[in-house]
Amino acid sequence: MLIDLKGIVKDYQVGLEKVHALCTIDLQINKGEYVAIMGPSGSGKSTLMNILGCLDTPTAGIYKLNNAQVSTMNDDELAEIRNREIGFVFQTFNLLPRATALHNVELPLIYNGTPAAQRREMAEKSLEKVGLKDRMNHRPNELSGGQRQRVAIARALVNNPSIILADEPTGNLDTRTGDEIMEICEDLHDAGNTIILVTHEEYIAEHSDRIIRLRDGMVERDEAA
């Protein structure tokens, strides 16, 4: 089992009030699965995705990723896990605006100390996978939205992570470009990658094999697509 969540609770303090963003989520995801997490806004899907992505730790409960107890790790241990195990693809791409596509893709490798020559080679290979090798010296503002998202995917892939975590990856793209991105995701899944997709669009979720629906911080339904 790749991901094992047991009794995950996340509370936020908003002013004097305590908000239960997640209450007791139990969830297992296996290696190679293609999962979509759905739910209306406020359902807790962002919170869940932050916890799955090790950007945040739960208030209570146990999160095991690849048998490592993530829920009790400190900042630096979490950073290492994110670097090694998780590839993020964000709705707003989140590329460094002043860095070239190549440098953006190299970033995760810089933070795990990969030697420069090997780093470049891996980043180029990753950009080649998303069909952007000829654009590797362009900066994000010289690329189209779809190209930017493909750079982000190349960056997510470069370190060969256990999970690719895509948070509304098509949210800022037109339908046609969005479809292109979804095709890439499918190819990645076919190549054996585990993909977790967060979305609120039914037709995007349908690309996955399994849809987990959240409501009010709880799993409402968990079914095959």
Binding site: N83, F88, P108, Y111
Partner: peptide, 10 residues
């Protein structure tokens, strides 16, 4: 935030 998400330690 981006750098931290990609694994930059504090």
């Amino acid at each position: 935030g981006i750098r931290k998400a990609l694994g930059a330690k504090n």
